[in-house]
Simulated assay, not measured.
Amino acid sequence: MNRDDYDHSRSARKSDYYIQDTPPKEARVLVEQHHYAKGGSNTGCYFHGLYRVADNKLVGVAWWLPPTKAACKAVNSDWKRVVGLSRLVIAPGEPRNAATILLGCSMRLIKRDARFVSLVTYADESQGHKGKIYVATNWQYAGMTRPRRRWIEPATGRQIAPKATVNRTKSEMLALGYEQTPAYPKHKFVFNLL
């Protein structure tokens, strides 16, 4: 989301929304429409939806899934108890703090479930993201990742999953019509639930 997509003229109140599990298909639609990645993985541990009380419309999604084993071990030695925020999206026109309401409630639902003890997420420097929402919800800043290039499908703007590119050379990817982005780092944030 861009700064201009939010409604700065009003603030969201928690009483304006409710958060509940949302079907993955519905979460995917919102992500494809409004998240810069234009999609996500085929799996997830949690799909928490932010719904407006006034019309029961889904206006936000927090999509959680386990990161790679190496990413988990860098966060907690009990690596099987780490879950990552893969996608956080709010529909345009919602108040800026709607994302904070969704993220805070989503984190409390995960803590209550008790399967995971550590959370990890990244703010994408290529999108101008610095992670202010994570700072606002008391995540610990854990530094920058190494810069990484991504492959994009030009027709849709969707990022191609790294595992889909692992067996192809750069020239093969270019021949298939994909475009490669410049290399950018991400800001890493960690939150311990215990």
Rank of each mutant, 00 (worst) to 15 (best):
G128A: 01
Q20P: 00
A98E: 04
R96S: 08
R3W: 13
Y6N: 02
T156L: 01
V75P: 00
A70D: 15
A99I: 05
G128E: 01
E172A: 04
I133N: 03
S15C: 09
K73F: 10
K25P: 11
W151Y: 09
T121A: 06
I19D: 10
L103C: 00
V120H: 02
C105S: 14
S77Q: 07
V120Y: 08
E32H: 04
T181Q: 06
F116N: 09
T181A: 12
G49N: 08
A12G: 13
D78R: 10
V53K: 04
G157M: 09
Y134N: 00
L88M: 11
Y36K: 00
M107Q: 08
G93F: 06
A99W: 07
S41D: 06
V89W: 03
K69N: 12
R115K: 13
A12I: 09
W63E: 00
D7K: 08
V120T: 08
Y46V: 03
P24M: 11
I90L: 05
L174P: 00
D21M: 15
T68C: 01
N76K: 07
N42T: 08
P67M: 03
V31N: 10
L85M: 04
Y51I: 00
C45A: 14
E32L: 04
W79S: 05
D4N: 10
W139K: 03
G104N: 14
R13H: 11
V59S: 06
L194K: 14
G40H: 07
R146G: 13
K73H: 10
Y18Q: 07
K111V: 03
A62M: 05
R149E: 11
F191Y: 11
G93T: 12
A12D: 02
P162M: 08
T22D: 01
P162T: 08
H35D: 11
T169V: 11
R87Q: 14
K25Y: 11
Y184R: 04
P162H: 02
